[in-house]
Simulated scan of single mutants.
Amino acid sequence: MRYGSKDVLKGVDFNVRRGEVVALLGPNGAGKTTTIEIMEGFRARSAGEVRVLGVDPSKGDELWRARLGIVLQSWRDHGKWQVRELLAQLGDFYRPYSTADRPRPRNVDELLAMVSLEEQADQKIANLSGGQRRRLDVAIGIVGRPELLFLDEPTVGFDPKARRDFHDVVHRLSDLEDTTIVLTTHDLDEAEKLSGRILILAGGQIVADGSADQLARQASGKAEVRWAVDGEHFVHATPDASTFVHELFKQHGDRVRDLEVRRASLEDTYMTMVRQYEAGRSEEAIAAFREAGQ
């Protein structure tokens, strides 16, 4: 993707398999939203190839769009509508595209329960709180039972309960309905809880791709093992924590206490990759990650 003479995306190369939950992480300005908008068909790319559900998004028709669900960072205001009324109306838009392979849109009461908006069903949207409005955005995104769901910063403004409820919805969609989900978030803990795979985007390119555990292994190379024997505490870094712990118990048996094995957290990994890019070592970092992942 190019704006004038500036490439904001270059060499963004990845695949997402059916039923995966993939988190796209990156600092502000890295190109996350632009990448999502190209895949959604909202923005035309400058070059390259994109296929979403087998279709070039720039040429997607209404039947193709009916297979997608989208939760944007912000949505056009429908303040005068009641919550139930809006969801029922949007559900009607999907009915002409229901087939033997494409289920009917969700029942409104089921949808309200999924996003915990039962008590607000007959309220005008203008009277909802910010968190309630964001839950409505999620409901709008899943009303048509999408095969592929895009979530752009979906839990901004959620309180802890609403966030936990939303996580349950994501797990239900992916585990029970085989929905493919691509999400962007600045919440690294949320990314680790929800996604089976994480992409890190920096400077307009993918600099890391793997599970949180895989990326942590690749970033640090070693695990930190902490333990105590007879009241004395020890710390040791090792590339093979399992073998080291086995030998530790073989040597000291039940005298080993307070055992802890710590790998780099997703936050550690994320910051390592972004710092390497900012330090001008992005190609070195990408090569190292790809080699370690083979």
Rank of each mutant, 00 (worst) to 15 (best):
V22P: 00
P96M: 05
K161W: 15
L148Y: 10
S58R: 06
T99K: 01
R133F: 06
I181T: 11
H186M: 12
F234I: 10
K6E: 12
P105S: 04
D56Q: 08
K161D: 15
P57N: 06
L53K: 02
H252W: 12
V143C: 07
G210L: 08
S5G: 14
E118C: 07
G210F: 06
I181W: 00
D109W: 08
G131C: 09
D122F: 02
F166G: 00
A216D: 13
V138F: 07
K6G: 05
D101P: 01
G4I: 05
N28T: 12
D7G: 01
V71A: 03
D7I: 00
R262F: 09
L215P: 00
L86Y: 08
D213M: 08
E85Q: 15
V229H: 07
F249H: 13
G141T: 03
T33N: 06
R197A: 05
E37I: 00
E153D: 13
V8A: 13
R255M: 11
T155I: 06
L111G: 05
H246P: 06
E110I: 03
K32T: 06
A47H: 11
Y3K: 05
R135C: 04
R84V: 07
A121Q: 08
A292T: 12
E190S: 08
W81D: 14
I200T: 05
V50N: 01
H186W: 12
T269C: 11
R263T: 11
Q123D: 15
V83C: 02
M273Q: 07
V235A: 13
V21A: 03
R102K: 13
R95T: 13
E224Y: 03
E49I: 06
D168C: 09
L9T: 04
T238F: 11
Q123W: 10
E224H: 09
A139H: 06
V55Y: 03
Y94T: 00
H246V: 12
T180N: 05
T272V: 09
V182H: 01
Y97Q: 10
A287C: 08
R197T: 05
R84T: 14
K80F: 10
R2C: 02
F42H: 12
A202C: 14
E232Y: 07
S265W: 10
R257W: 06
D189N: 14
G141R: 01
K222A: 13
T238R: 10
L136H: 03
R45Y: 06
E177S: 07
V55H: 06
Q73T: 09
A139K: 03
I70M: 07
A30F: 01
D175S: 13
L112W: 02
P239T: 14
K124L: 13
E260W: 10
E40H: 07
D109V: 08
R275P: 04
E37R: 11
L25R: 01
R255K: 15
T179L: 04
V156S: 13
G60K: 04
A162I: 08
R164P: 06
V169N: 04
E291P: 02
G79E: 15
R145H: 11
V108W: 03
